[in-house]
Design a protein around this nucleic acid. Structure first.
Lengths: 110, 110
DNA sequence: TATATATGATACCTATTGGTATTATATGGA
DNA sequence: TCCATATAATACCAATAGGTATCATATATA
């Protein structure tokens, strides 16, 4: 239940980390697999993975000498829930937009 | 349609900026109003507001010598949409959990 | 007009961040 | 066992970020 909002948003703030999540959404991957997808050292990728793990956006499972990284929904849900607090802002905006469209439609029919 | 994912997530990564959004969700505020809510200088708050504006999380309206800051749904929606790409992960996780509960229930009834 | 107020802009400082290079450790296979 | 491979850990560096202090500008108001 420990929803670490800061950890989640901090992890999501870096474009490389968001790309890592995109790759992991296609399939679980080792660090080596991920390094092949980026133009940076293994150590750099590992640091990003650590930040993602701290934000509960990924989970790591040891398998022999490999470590399988996979999406962990917890952190994403934490961020999602935080943003959802503001949902009514764009709901209101969208309904206002719809109202405007409706009004415009009536005006055009004049 | 230019959805600046980086600008939005960068803005959301700082706890002070998230608190500013929380305050603005209650009511629109000037910089002065916001400074009263934090233990930092006006210049620091102004910097945060600039980052929030760049991420399209707030919009600023000049009124006399004051500038009214208000929530701008665009940036929040941009971040939300990005995260929503992963929705099926926690949907799947939740339905797997439900399956486990159902199975456990049947087993307990044995 | 003169003055207080609300804000903007910039220089500067320190801590954090994203990256590399390097060394160490553990595991799979010939 | 010996060696290649997959990863971990650490020191180090440059750039960025969050903060303050300071000065400049614009607008209410006495």
């Amino acid at each position: 239940m420990n929803s670490d909002v800061q950890g989640a948003f901090r992890a999501l703030a870096d474009p490389t980390r968001r790309q890592i999540l995109m790759h992991l959404s296609a399939s679980d991957m080792t660090i080596g697999d991920l390094v092949d997808q980026f133009d940076m050292t293994r150590a750099a990728v590992k640091k990003h993975l650590t930040v993602l793990e701290e934000g509960h956006l990924i989970a790591v499972e040891a398998r022999g000498r490999e470590r399988i990284n996979r999406i962990e929904p917890m952190g994403l849900k934490t961020a999602m829930d935080w943003i959802n607090y503001f949902n009514h802002f764009w709901d209101d905006r969208l309904s206002a937009l719809q109202d405007a469209i409706d009004t415009e439609g009536r005006e055009n029919n004049d």
